[in-house]
Simulated scan of single mutants.
Amino acid sequence: MLVKDLLKGSKITLTSFKDTHLPSLEKWYNDIYFLRNFDMIPAFPKNAQELSSAVNDTRRSSDKCIFAINYTEDEKIIGITGFENILWNNGTATVYIGIGEKKYRGCGVGSESLYLTMEFGFEELNLHRIQLTVISYNKPAIGLYEKLGFKKEGTYRQFIYRDGIRYDMYLYGILRSEWETNIKGGTISK
C-alpha cells in the first residue's frame, strides 16, 4: 500500500510545533505587519512565555491543532498553520496560516503550506468543511484562498478598525466535494 506524505511538499514540510520554534514565533508577534494580517485582535506584542502558554493550550485542546511550517532546504521554521474551532460532530474547522519570515512571503510557500493543511484536514481529519476569515485589505491572502478553491460566503461589514478606518472581514469556505473536484480537475495542486 502506498502511503502519501500529507505533510511534505516540494518547498515546505509541516511538523509539530516545538519549543525551539518559540524565538521565531516571538519575533513574528513583535512584527506589526504580521500581526495585522494574521489576527483580528489588537496587535499586542507577545513574549516567548505568553506564546508558550498559548501553544501549550493548543496542544492540550481537542478542538485545535498547530503545525510549524518549515522550509525544507534548511529546515528553518518560516510560519505557522493549523485548525481551530474544530467541531468533530459536524466535520467543520477554521483554518489559519501565517508566514512569519518576510523573505518567504509571496514566493509560493503560503500556497503550498495551506494546500497541505487543507489536504490533512480533508484526508486525515475527515473534515467536511474548512472555513476562514480574512480582512478585506489583505489582498494577497484573498488571492491565495480563491486560488485554492475557497468561496467567499459572506461579509462582516466594518468589522475591523485599524488606523482610523473600518474594514470588512470576509468569510470564506470550501467543502470536501469542492476540494475533491478541484483536485481531480487539476485546478489546484501542491
Rank of each mutant, 00 (worst) to 15 (best):
residue 37 N to Q: 09
residue 37 N to M: 04
residue 37 N to S: 12
residue 38 F to L: 13
residue 39 D to V: 12
residue 39 D to M: 09
residue 41 I to F: 04
residue 41 I to Q: 09
residue 42 P to C: 01
residue 42 P to G: 02
residue 42 P to L: 05
residue 42 P to E: 11
residue 42 P to Y: 01
residue 43 A to G: 10
residue 43 A to I: 14
residue 43 A to T: 15
residue 44 F to P: 05
residue 44 F to A: 12
residue 44 F to T: 15
residue 44 F to V: 15
residue 44 F to S: 11
residue 45 P to G: 10
residue 46 K to G: 05
residue 46 K to H: 12
residue 46 K to F: 03
residue 46 K to T: 13
residue 47 N to K: 13
residue 47 N to T: 09
residue 47 N to P: 08
residue 47 N to W: 01
residue 47 N to I: 02
residue 48 A to V: 15
residue 48 A to F: 00
residue 48 A to I: 15
residue 48 A to P: 06
residue 49 Q to E: 14
residue 49 Q to K: 10
residue 49 Q to I: 12
residue 49 Q to P: 00
residue 50 E to F: 00
residue 50 E to Q: 13
residue 50 E to A: 00
residue 51 L to R: 04
residue 51 L to A: 03
residue 51 L to V: 07
residue 51 L to N: 04
residue 51 L to I: 13
residue 52 S to P: 00
residue 52 S to D: 10
residue 53 S to G: 11
residue 53 S to D: 11
residue 53 S to E: 11
residue 54 A to F: 03
residue 54 A to V: 08
residue 54 A to T: 09
residue 55 V to Q: 11
residue 56 N to T: 13
residue 56 N to W: 00
residue 57 D to Q: 13
residue 57 D to H: 09
residue 57 D to T: 15
residue 58 T to E: 04
residue 58 T to G: 03
residue 59 R to A: 05
residue 59 R to V: 09
residue 59 R to I: 13
residue 60 R to P: 02
residue 61 S to A: 03
residue 61 S to G: 01
residue 61 S to V: 00
residue 61 S to W: 00
residue 63 D to R: 00
residue 63 D to H: 04
residue 63 D to L: 01
residue 63 D to F: 00
residue 64 K to L: 03
residue 64 K to M: 07
residue 64 K to P: 03
residue 65 C to L: 10
residue 65 C to R: 07
residue 65 C to Q: 06
residue 66 I to L: 14
residue 66 I to V: 03
residue 66 I to D: 05
residue 66 I to H: 06
residue 68 A to Q: 08
residue 68 A to W: 06
residue 69 I to E: 14
residue 69 I to R: 12
residue 69 I to P: 14
residue 70 N to C: 08
residue 70 N to Y: 01
residue 70 N to K: 07
residue 71 Y to Q: 08
residue 71 Y to H: 10
residue 71 Y to L: 02
residue 72 T to W: 02
residue 72 T to G: 07
residue 72 T to E: 14
residue 72 T to Q: 12
residue 72 T to C: 07
residue 73 E to N: 06
residue 73 E to D: 08
residue 73 E to P: 00
residue 73 E to G: 02
residue 73 E to W: 00
residue 74 D to P: 03
residue 74 D to L: 07
residue 75 E to H: 10
residue 75 E to P: 05
residue 75 E to R: 11
residue 75 E to S: 11
residue 75 E to A: 09
residue 76 K to D: 06
residue 76 K to W: 00
residue 76 K to E: 10
residue 76 K to G: 02
residue 77 I to D: 13
residue 78 I to V: 15
residue 78 I to S: 10
residue 79 G to K: 02
residue 79 G to E: 11
residue 80 I to S: 07
residue 80 I to D: 04
residue 81 T to L: 07
residue 81 T to N: 11
residue 82 G to V: 04
residue 83 F to D: 12
residue 83 F to C: 10
residue 84 E to P: 01
residue 85 N to D: 14
residue 85 N to R: 10
residue 86 I to V: 15
residue 86 I to H: 08
residue 87 L to D: 15
residue 87 L to P: 03
residue 87 L to T: 15
residue 88 W to F: 06
